[in-house]
Every structure is written in C-alpha cells, then in structure tokens.
C-alpha cells in the first residue's frame, strides 16, 4: 500500500533505541541535546504501547506481504514470484473479482442511496429508523457466512423462496444458482446495500434544510434543488461510497467461501487455496503476490476515496 511505507518511516522515527534506526543522535551531540532528546522521547512514550501492538499485528504483516512478494525462496530479492503470478489464470481471477465488485457496488449504491434518503427523512430518534440502521449494520459488516446460509435456506434447491416461486408462479429457480456467479452477485448485493445505507445516511443528513428553503424562497422548484444543489453536493459522497462498496466487495471472502467449494474464482479464494496448499511451498509466494495485487487495487481505490473526502470536507462550514 502506498501509504504504508510512510507510516513505517514515521514509525522508525518515533521508535526509541529499540530498533536502533532513525532517532540516533549525531556523533558529536553534546550532553544537552541528548538530554532534550531523551526528554522528548519520554514525553512521547505514551504512544509506545499502541505503536508496538499495531506494529506487530498490523504493520508487520503488511510489510511481510509486500516484501514476501519480492523474495525468492532462498531469501534474496527476486521478481520470480511476480513473474509466476502474471499468467492468464491470475488475470482472469482478478478480472472476475473486479467486475463482481463493480457490479455489486453500483447496484448496491443506487438502491442503498434511495433507502438512505428514505431513512434520513425520519427523525433521528425514531425507533424504526434505529432498528433498521442496526440491522443494516449487521448485514453489512458482520454477516458473511450466516448470510450465505440464509440464502441457501431461501433460494437453495429446497429453499423457501424456491418452493414459493415454484408453487405460486411456476418459476423454477436454477438449482445451482447459488454456486454460480449470478447467485454470488445476488448475495453480495445483499450486504452491499446495507453498507451503502450506513455510509450514505450521514451524507444525506448533512443536507441542511436551509439550502432547500433558500432554493424555494428564491423561486426554485424541487427539481431545481436536486439538480443544482443536492445533486452536486451529494455526488462526491455518492462516488466515495461507491468506492467503499467496491473495496468491500473486492475484499470479501466469507460469503463466497460459504457458497462455493472446489473452485477459486475470486482473488481471496485464490489466496486461501494458495495458503492451504501444503504440498507446494512455492504457493506462499503466490499468495503474497496475490495479496500484494489486492493491496495495490485497494490502495488506488482508497486514494481516490481520500481525495473525494478532502473535496467535500472543504465544504463543511
């Protein structure tokens, strides 16, 4: 991730003598400057525990992934891992994951924004709004495997909806729906929409009533308001949310794992099979390259997201 090296650099600068990097005073330091240096450190000591913990469990793994992708089996720098990974199969997997993420992000964003708008019209304390928000939270972030099972119960071979559609409308749901791409898209949409709702409601809430009333008092209709005011103001937030949804779907693993077995059609699943492949230790490097690829994609997405956020943050008065 492009931003990680920076934090690594900063990490080194803030670290005490422990790692011995950065922060070492110049050889000709007088006792005065080393004293102030020590004092500065002890003032900053409060950050150490947090820093150490996230260093080990967050930064270190990320560094290992990035470095590992460029490391040969004997430990030296090598681009072999990358070369090996650059084949048609990997490309196909990345492509599948990308369009899966894109499609579900767009559908989720559009439907979710409508629901978000509806929610924002309710007063913030209303019970129905809060319950719906809580449930959206669950579906969006904590649902994975359980959602997959729910879908199997709904649309599986003997699912409730399958039977309903058959008996009421004589419509037959294909029995392998859920292990096909269409099924996965459907389930993904089911957690993309709630995520959109959660992310976008604050944006819609941020539309101040004064803006609408100003437009109306000057002669603008609701259409004018949405076209010239609400639309342009919400657009960056909408795009940002769309990017988040994309990143979310791109990284998703649990749902696909629960629905599909014996296949690796998306990148996370490919990573899994690479890790679990105990026969071929070369696969670790492959997993790391795949992971690096994911980091790059997500990094680009999040950089765009950050840029959009900065743009809208300017407007907050």
């Amino acid at each position: 991730m492009t931003t990680v090296p920076t934090s690594v650099g900063r990490a080194d600068a803030a670290r005490p003598t422990g790692r011995g990097a950065g922060g070492r005073p110049p050889a000709a330091a007088t006792s005065v400057s080393s004293r102030t240096w020590v004092r500065a450190l002890s003032r900053d000591a409060g950050i150490l525990p947090f820093f150490a913990y996230t260093g080990i469990f967050l930064l270190l793994p990320t560094i290992l992934v990035i470095i590992g992708a460029f490391t040969a089996r004997d430990g030296g720098f090598s681009l072999d891992g990358i070369h090996q990974a650059l084949n048609a199969r990997t490309a196909k997997i990345f492509w599948t994951t990308t369009w899966l993420a894109a499609v579900t992000a767009i559908v989720g964003a559009v439907v979710g924004s409508v629901i978000a708008y509806a929610l924002s019209t309710a007063p913030q304390g209303s019970v129905s709004r809060r319950v719906i928000t809580a449930f959206n939270s669950v579906l969006a972030q904590f649902g994975g495997v359980m959602l997959a099972f729910a879908f199997i119960a709904m649309l599986g071979t003997n699912g409730m909806i399958t039977r309903l559609l058959h008996s009421l409308f004589s419509v037959d749901v294909p029995s392998n729906l859920l292990s096909s791409m269409a099924g996965i898209v459907l389930v993904y949409i089911y957690f993309q929409i709630p995520l959109m709702v959660i992310v976008f409601v604050p944006a819609v809430d941020g539309l101040r009533s004064e803006w609408r009333e100003t437009t109306m008092s000057f002669g603008g209709t609701t259409r004018t308001f949405w076209l010239s005011v609400a639309g342009p103001i919400l657009a960056p937030r909408f795009l940002g949310a769309l990017l988040l949804l994309f990143a979310n779907a791109f990284s998703a693993f649990a749902t696909a794992a629960a629905l599909i077995s014996q296949q690796t059609i998306i990148v996370p699943m490919a990573i899994e099979s690479a890790i679990r492949n105990e026969n071929n230790t070369n696969m670790t490097a492959y997993a790391q390259v795949l992971a690096l690829g994911m980091i790059l994609v997500i990094a680009v997405i999040m950089a765009l997201y950050a840029a959009l956020q900065r743009k809208t943050a300017r407007w907050e008065q």
Binding site: R208, E210, W211, E213, T214, T215, M216, S217, F218, G219, G220, T221, V229, P232, I233, W315, E316, Q317
Partner: peptide
C-alpha cells in the same frame, strides 16, 4: 401559493449560501 412562487428572498441565520 407555494414558496417558490411568492417572489421573495430569504436570508437565514447561517448556511444561507450553497457550499459548493
């Protein structure tokens, strides 16, 4: 008459201007 047909202009306490 709805507000947008009344040919008036309003200044609010804050947030009168369109931020974008």
């Amino acid at each position: 008459l709805p507000a947008y047909k009344r040919d008036m202009a309003m200044v609010f306490q804050a947030y009168s201007l369109m931020p974008h």
